[in-house]
Amino acid sequence: MNREKLMKMAGAVRTGGKGSMRRKKKAVHKTTTTDDKRLQSTLKRIGVNAIPAIEEVNIFKDDIVIQFVNPKVQASIAANTWVVSGSPQTKKLQDILPQVLSHLGPDNLDNLKKLAEEIQKRAPGAGATATAAQEDDDDQVPDLVAGETFEAAAEEGNAAA
């Protein structure tokens, strides 16, 4: 290092001019390991166990798929808790659909078909028919229980009060 550069660095540490005291506060760098340790202790308390040999996890949300390749998967069946950790990739359902179809069983394939139909209904070209169907559902009034009216229920409520 040359002398000018060293003097410039030393000058940045001082609070005032020449002869003044230097900073006493030391910069504290917080590590993220405390959060990780806290999470691991909570998971240990719940009683999660590692599930080995899972190569891929796909989470379906609307028309988006969150994909984890070679994740660390932990589960606690009693606590109904699943932990998937790794680096995620967000993809569109249309892009990943051919790849995912080979992994699904017959029950999940039906669920995926329903999801695809819902997405098509929300598509810009099919928006008018989906909106019309929703309006028809909103216009319908549910049937009352036989023999009961709103007035009778209100009178019973007032009598109880």
Rank of each mutant, 00 (worst) to 15 (best):
D36A: 14
D36E: 05
P88V: 00
A133E: 10
N58H: 13
N111C: 12
I119H: 01
I64Y: 04
I119Q: 01
A159T: 08
T131E: 11
N70F: 06
Q134F: 07
E55M: 07
G125I: 03
E118T: 03
K8N: 14
T81M: 13
S20C: 08
Q40V: 03
T149C: 02
T33Q: 10
T31F: 09
G86S: 00
K26V: 12
E148R: 12
R23C: 11
Q94D: 09
L144T: 05
G19W: 00
D35Y: 11
A78Q: 13
T31E: 07
F150Q: 12
T129F: 02
N158L: 11
G125Y: 01
K30S: 08
K91L: 14
A53P: 14
A161M: 12
R23I: 06
K26S: 09
T34I: 10
V84M: 01
D62R: 11
R14H: 03
G157C: 15
I66S: 09
G86C: 00
R22Q: 11
H29K: 08
A153C: 07
Q74M: 15
V83T: 04
E156A: 08
N80H: 12
L104M: 02
K26W: 03
T149V: 02
T33K: 10
E156C: 05
F150W: 09
E118G: 09
G127W: 06
D35H: 10
A159K: 15
I46L: 08
G19V: 01
K30M: 07
D136S: 13
K8L: 13
I66V: 11
A27C: 09
T149M: 02
L43N: 03
A130N: 03
A128S: 10
R3G: 08
L101K: 14
V73L: 03
K92A: 06
G105H: 05
G47C: 01
A128I: 07
D143I: 02
Q74N: 13
V83M: 05
Q140N: 09
V73I: 01
F150S: 10
D137M: 11
D35F: 10
Q134P: 11
T90F: 11
I59C: 04
K72L: 06
N49L: 13
N70Y: 09
P106E: 00
G47Q: 03
S87F: 07
D95T: 06
A27T: 14
M9A: 14
V83D: 03
A133Y: 04
V57H: 00
A116C: 13
A116D: 04
I64G: 04
I64Q: 08
E155Y: 04
A159Q: 10
V57Q: 03
K61H: 12
R23L: 12
L97G: 03
S76K: 00
E156I: 02
A78S: 15
R23N: 13
G127R: 14
R3N: 09
I54A: 01
V84G: 02
K92H: 11
G11N: 04
N158G: 01
A12V: 07
T129D: 09
V28W: 04
L6A: 11
I64V: 15
L104N: 01
G147V: 01
P88F: 00
R38T: 08
I46E: 11
P98Q: 00
K24Y: 03
A153K: 15
W82H: 08
K91Y: 05
A146P: 06
K8S: 13
